[in-house]
């Protein structure tokens, strides 16, 4: 059994960087889309609510790989020829992968936030309003801090899953960590060392997310004045 040479380690670190970039971009996208979905879902307009539900159910019931393939192979068909050409010359797999990952994760995050909101009794809002807070103040100071605290564990779990799920984008040739590991394995046949190094990197990332998550959770638990 050999350790990997410097060039391969360097290649693998490059994959890790891509994985992290993909994770961050798709997380930001996912969270913004999720918040939008939650706000739309809170309106009285039944068509909008139905559309949000359909969005969520679609993404929960179709595999991530299929979203990725759909966005990479299918969606560009809808674009004009010139734009499509430009896109494929400019790292299309990366941006389309981020979109597919982000939109998929948004469905789950929206549900997490919604169940966080549901966990807060109506009386909390009433109490805030009774003290003279307006709608926005009640939301900002009373409801949202509590709802977020409830949703934190679920959101950490989502972040972890999203981080791991970036590996699926190797199927469309995004040069992230799993992709690079496979490339190196094909070149060197040092399966154990290669997969071992990649696994160690994933674990480092995953444990970091778990650690940060635990800190956030502890912070919210204290500022909430109650052990969560």
């Amino acid at each position: 059994m050999y350790l990997l040479e410097a060039q391969y380690l360097y290649q693998m670190l490059g994959g890790m960087v891509t994985t992290i970039q993909l994770f961050i971009v798709s997380w930001v996208l996912a969270f913004s889309v999720a918040l939008t979905l939650v706000v739309i879902r809170a309106t009285e307009w039944s068509v909008a609510r139905w559309l949000v539900d359909a969005y969520v159910e679609y993404h929960r019931n179709v595999p991530l790989l299929v979203h990725v393939l759909f966005w990479y192979f299918g969606m560009p068909e809808l674009l004009p020829e010139s734009v499509r050409g430009w896109l494929y010359q400019h790292n299309a797999e990366m941006s389309l992968a981020a979109i597919a990952l982000g939109l998929g994760a948004a469905a789950y995050i929206a549900e997490d936030i919604r169940s966080g909101l549901r966990a807060i009794p109506d009386t909390q809002f009433e109490a805030a309003r009774a003290m003279g807070a307006n709608y926005l103040q009640g939301m900002r100071y009373v409801i949202i801090p509590q709802a977020l605290r409830h949703a934190v564990p679920a959101l950490i779990g989502r972040a972890l899953l999203l981080f791991k799920n970036t590996s699926v984008t190797m199927a469309i040739g995004v040069a992230e960590l799993t992709y690079q590991a496979r490339e190196i394995e094909n070149d060197t046949y040092r399966t154990f060392a290669t997969y071992g190094a990649a696994t160690a990197m994933y674990l480092a990332g995953a444990f970091l997310i778990m650690f940060i998550g635990a800190r956030i959770h502890a912070y919210y638990a204290i500022s909430g004045g109650r052990n969560a």
Partner: peptide, 13 residues
């Protein structure tokens, strides 16, 4: 550990 690594990585393993 299993929850910390992608399923795809596990498949390769």
């Amino acid at each position: 550990v299993i929850r910390g690594i992608p399923l795809l990585m596990l498949i390769f393993w």
